[in-house]
């Protein structure tokens, strides 16, 4: 309750002063957004968990260099984008031997619901799985642009800033992504 209304900057100040509680509070405030972002960008929950920890480790290490310029969320998501691209590049260079991590995830994540309507829960689970499968069909750079545009609702200028890419390149990547998503969807409908 004490921290409920504390701003990010206040929590950052206290965390830099060595307060573990304030740091945890700051992490709890943003971790759901970051985790879901990681989940959409990576192939499975295991990678998403690793990435989540990497992101917050990097955030903590760079906290002293954060000078309250702009929003903390944007600064943090810039770090998340960099870390994600690093991970995806590593995965591209040395793909893992797993047959289908996403399919395994789909089995592991599916739990019988407690109180909600099972049909509704299954439908939601299916939507998430469909979105992740579609995103996986895109190369990392295009996936990042789609994520930032459709899920983070960033403007093209913000995306350009986060990805250190010219605005026109961002627009072109989004356009190519849409064409590719269309092809993927059509293939799935045919199959």
């Amino acid at each position: 309750m004490l921290f409920a209304s504390a701003s990010d900057e206040t929590l950052i100040g206290k965390a830099l002063g060595g307060s573990q509680r304030h740091w945890e509070r700051l992490v709890r405030r943003h971790e759901t957004m970051v985790y879901n972002y990681c989940l959409r960008m990576t192939r499975n929950t295991s990678d998403a968990r690793d990435l989540l920890q990497e992101v917050f480790l990097a955030v903590y290490r760079h906290l002293p260099s954060y000078r309250n310029e702009g929003q903390f969320k944007g600064w943090m998501m810039r770090i998340a984008a960099n870390k994600t691209m690093d991970l995806l590049r590593v995965r591209q260079r040395s793909p893992r031997l797993s047959t289908d991590d996403a399919a395994l995830d789909a089995v592991q994540q599916w739990q019988a619901p407690d109180t909600q309507n099972p049909d509704r829960v299954y439908e939601q689970h299916n939507d998430n799985h469909r979105i992740r499968t579609l995103l996986q069909a895109l190369p990392p750079e295009q996936r990042l642009v789609v994520e930032l545009k459709f899920f983070q609702h960033c403007t093209f200028e913000e995306i350009a800033l986060q990805t250190s890419t010219p605005v026109n390149t961002v627009k072109s990547r989004l356009y190519t992504s849409l064409q590719k998503l269309k092809d993927t969807l059509e293939e799935r409908h045919v199959v």
Partner: peptide, 25 residues
């Protein structure tokens, strides 16, 4: 349009338990 609609259907997943301060303190 379809992707805007699909993106709106994303259900936030809960973060699995993890030690938030393991590496920082």
């Amino acid at each position: 349009l379809e992707f805007y609609e699909l993106a709106g259907k994303w259900q936030q997943q809960e973060v699995p338990h993890w030690n938030r301060a393991r590496f920082v303190v």
